[in-house]
Nucleic acid binder design. Structure first.
Lengths: 217, 217, 217, 217
DNA sequence: CATGAATGAGACTTCATTCAT
DNA sequence: TATGAATGAAGTCTCATTCAT
């Protein structure tokens, strides 16, 4: 720990070779994170795993944190893309079908790289770096909000933005808990059913009441 | 960061003086955590802030992590106690009133030491010991479960344990999000209303439908 | 003295600069050992004396002990080389001349770096690595053994290997004692005479009896 | 490592209780030395094993080193006593018988507490503390010297003091080597035979020549 | 005298970062 | 631009020793 931190990103990877280098480094960081955890994820180790000199790392990343941030951003972008794709296939299904599909999408997405997701959530000190995970989560928000707005008629809600906010928190909370403690449940239809009920009841108790006279099995 | 960790437990604080020392150290750790964050929370700094020699720290805590764990445990115990107290005052209110009261309790509890709570959630790497925060959360579970069991008749659920699991995750998720991004909302009745709706609709869509013909404002 | 030992070897000094660094560090360790003793021979002190940063020390040596071991190995190698050279000049002198010459060689060798030799013998806890001094001593054994084997005819011994073992122990014992308590004697011919008698009598009492009708002065 | 060293012995154990305390502490130190080695032999550990408070240790011993020195002195005294007893039984045997008996005595003595002897030799940094082992060795010297003086007539030596010096060094050297590397040999008559030859040949080549026309088996 | 909590200098070691080549 | 040797601040933890009780 010799010099002070620099926040400024060092260089834009414009050249193709540069882009490749960045890719290689983010890969290596991911690998180390998965294999050895955050504590053991030192810049020298990343360089070694990447098969690159430590100097080159600093050519493209201003500091250690930025490496992890890059991993997070790439991961998040993948989730984002997957979500967008799935949601766009929704078409104009009826409310309960749509919600059910969305929950399915979130579960599926959650299964994309569960171990990485978990390491990021669990081990990475949230300071700076990980606050982003939440911020990035917010990128779902407008999509959800828009959808709620569009279906306002069928829903018993007044503020789509608050509803979106609450729902995202709720679903993420459940998913996080499951990911940490019962990863196996991610595979089960049961969870999808429960999440659907959670969301649907919140949005339209009446519709929900008709779907589950009592409750999901 | 030189030597490896020792698991060896230290003296148990039996004497009065010892207990005081432990208290002082946990206080100091809390203070440092709040003022400087987890990264800057070094054993030397804690000792300094506690006005105690570094040796005394290691007399009672085997390593840095255990200090933070102690802070977490104390914090958690406080929340726990506050929750128990509030829930025990519930009596036999009707369903929607009861849920509303519970959400109020959770919000209130969340306000006990919001900054500490936030630091613990945000910054402390969950590695090993710190997974505890979630484990400790599980201590709510039996209480909630029991309550659901007792009110089964009025509820449209089949498995109180799954319902409890989902609800705890959902509510914690919302609260966490709010705490991180909109701490101000903790003060608002609006949030309580929304959480109540979230929970109540999930548990008994019909009851919810009658309470909110449309939605909370 | 904080963390536990790591066995992990460090970089092998392949580059020229590296080799120089290692050299510098071993020199510095020797210097500190001589000037301040083993207790005061801390890694920081070595780095300081070497005019090098502490980090560089750990680039090449995994821990404090390995520094001292390196000093010992270098020292031992020097003695070894000196002995080999001297013994090879022995030619086919007669028995008593040969033994006399050998003892001279050992004394000479002992005088190469008597202060270092003494510090190593006296202060370095033999723990683990430092048992090596004795092990390395064993490297003389085969040479002595071979010589005894070659001269078996003139000698009154049956087992060259046992004889070699005993003689090495005996001569080392005397030399050590002298080095510790009467370093001045190393310069005297008297000692050489006595050692010669010790060895020669053991090997061939008759020859000895003719050489010393009574005893060395 | 807070205060500086004091060399002054703290108090003479005049009272019986005091003497017992000292005994208990030396015992404990010995036990720790044997069980855990010198590195792990901390003052606190000694106190614990002795079942005594650390404060009490410092009531009787000015510092850590003095504890180890006490162990060494007691051990040495035991060896000494054993040697004196055995040598006094020598009567006026003839030369070669006497030497043979002496060697037997030394071997026997060496077997009294070989593990302790070895730990003291191997692990204890010789600084200050262990130089004593050699000094104490010197206590044999006068006895040996006197004996040589008494038998001067039969011996081919001129200086009993030098001869004693050399012989003690030689025999100690062999014994040390054996103790370290081949402890099993201590039990064998072979070693006694070789040592006898070593000493006897040195003292009186002629006598030796008649005893071993060739060599010990 | 005994106790043992407290002390604190200082040991060893790591690792983010720089910079000469 | 790539390299990787070098840096050194800073961290964790130990343990001989003291001193208030």
């Amino acid at each position: 720990m010799a010099p002070k931190r620099r926040a400024a990103p060092r260089k834009k990877p414009l050249q193709r070779r540069s882009r490749e280098m960045v890719e290689v480094l983010v890969d290596a960081t991911t690998r180390v994170l998965l294999k050895d955890g955050y504590e053991a994820c030192t810049t020298n180790r990343v360089a070694e795993v990447a098969g690159v000199s430590i100097g080159s790392v600093y050519q493209y990343f201003p500091n250690k944190e930025s490496l992890v941030v890059a991993v997070m951003e790439r991961h998040q972008a993948q989730l984002q893309a997957a979500m967008v794709e799935r949601l766009s296939q929704l078409g104009d299904a009826d409310l309960s079908t749509a919600v059910h599909a969305m929950m399915g999408a979130m579960l599926e997405v959650q299964r994309l790289q569960p171990r990485l997701h978990r390491v990021l959530l669990e081990q990475v000190p949230r300071i700076g770096a990980l606050r982003r995970l939440h911020e990035l989560n917010n990128e779902y928000a407008p999509m959800i909000e828009a959808w709620l707005e569009a279906h306002r008629g069928e829903l018993g809600i007044t503020s789509p933005s608050v509803a979106a906010y609450v729902l995202i928190g709720a679903v993420e909370g459940v998913l996080q808990r499951v990911l940490m403690e019962k990863p196996g449940w991610l595979e089960l239809g049961l969870l999808q059913e429960h999440l659907t009920r959670l969301v649907l009841s919140y949005l339209a108790p009446t519709a929900s009441a008709s779907r589950w006279p009592s409750a999901p099995s």
